[in-house]
Amino acid sequence: MLPEATAHYRPPAPERDQRIDWPDDFGLRFTLFVDAEEEFDWSRPFDRANRSTSHMRALPQAHQSFTDVGLAPIYMVDHPIATDPCAIEILGALVAEGTAAIGTQLHPWVNPPFIEAVCEANSFAGNLPPELEAAKIDMLGAAITRAFGAAPRAYRAGRYGLGPHTLATLESRGYALDTSMRSLYDYSGTGGPDYSHLDVGPFWCGPQRKLIELPLSSAFTGVLRGHARAVSRLPGAHLFARAGLLSRVALTPEDMPVEDALEAIRIMAGDGVRLLSFSYHSPSIEPGHTPYVRDAADLARFYRWWDAVFALLARMGARPASLDQIIAAAWATR
């Protein structure tokens, strides 16, 4: 068995010629990536035995709330989902009706081949030896292809765990888009990657620059946001958030107050961001599986968050963007 990994990855910031400038007719768009994954206790160590996907029975109702506003969610499927007959049937029906797309999400601790030690550092797939990371990506891609009849085109490393070899592997396997980089976030304290230096702008990456990188949308809000990068590195920086002076806000209902999210949307749109990327974890659609939705009241709050966000986006004239539309628009700029 391979030992625990220790390194972490800091991808280089894109050069100007790597940046993707959306076509003039693209407008302001938004999309939704769903981390479609197994249920597990987030407060406990990782365990290969945690493969339950019972919450997927609630997915059709949740899905409808997104298709009602024209979204075609992109479900980033991991190995337990891709090999569960019930989950395959539910997601397959949504894909068949044209209201969903399927991507890949790698949780290495539940994705064969099982060679590495199960530990926090190895939960970031990019820390694994490149041959093992590639083997896991290949086995997951094959499972998704069998389950849904087409090879996945989008990838997300579970826990945002890219490594120095991941993008080359994805590009060589024909992936079109990666969405593993969480702009403004740093996971190096637990052995993961550091994306704190990246903004939300999309860019071409991979050895041949044929892979679209679409970082998850995050923004600093508050009166100190003009000095955010310097202030956020200061000891006790969390006190600025408590005082309402500086907050880092990701576009997710999970642990992000709705008023903060609405402000972040306004800021990003005002700064010229043309594509807003939202996300959530699929177990959050049923109480009791994530720290964000523990009971019925939390679930009601989850849906109210989306109602408020969609209302603002409608007022701003923002339109949904599907996976195919995003890929086509990026390639139209080449």
Rank of each mutant, 00 (worst) to 15 (best):
E213N: 10
L214K: 08
P215L: 02
P215F: 02
P215M: 08
P215K: 07
L216G: 08
S218T: 06
A219E: 03
F220D: 09
T221A: 05
G222W: 00
G222V: 06
L224Q: 09
L224P: 07
R225Y: 00
R225V: 08
R225W: 06
H227A: 15
H227T: 11
H227Y: 11
H227E: 07
A228T: 10
A228D: 07
V231E: 06
V231I: 15
R233I: 08
R233L: 11
P235K: 00
G236W: 01
A237K: 02
L239R: 15
L239S: 14
A241H: 04
A241V: 05
R242A: 12
G244W: 12
L245Q: 13
L246N: 10
S247R: 13
S247Y: 07
R248L: 05
R248P: 01
A250W: 00
L251W: 04
T252E: 04
T252W: 02
M256H: 02
M256L: 09
P257N: 11
E259D: 13
E259Q: 04
L262R: 05
L262Q: 01
E263F: 00
E263S: 07
E263N: 04
E263Q: 01
A264P: 01
A264N: 02
I265Q: 03
R266W: 07
R266F: 05
R266I: 07
I267V: 09
G270Y: 02
D271K: 09
D271T: 06
L275E: 00
L275Y: 02
L276C: 11
S277T: 15
S277W: 04
S279T: 15
Y280P: 04
H281N: 12
H281C: 04
S282Y: 04
S282I: 01
P283G: 14
P283E: 13
S284Y: 10
I285L: 15
E286Y: 09
P287H: 09
H289V: 03
T290K: 13
T290S: 13
P291Y: 04
Y292T: 14
V293F: 13
V293Q: 14
V293T: 13
R294E: 14
R294V: 13
D295L: 14
A296S: 13
A296W: 05
A296I: 03
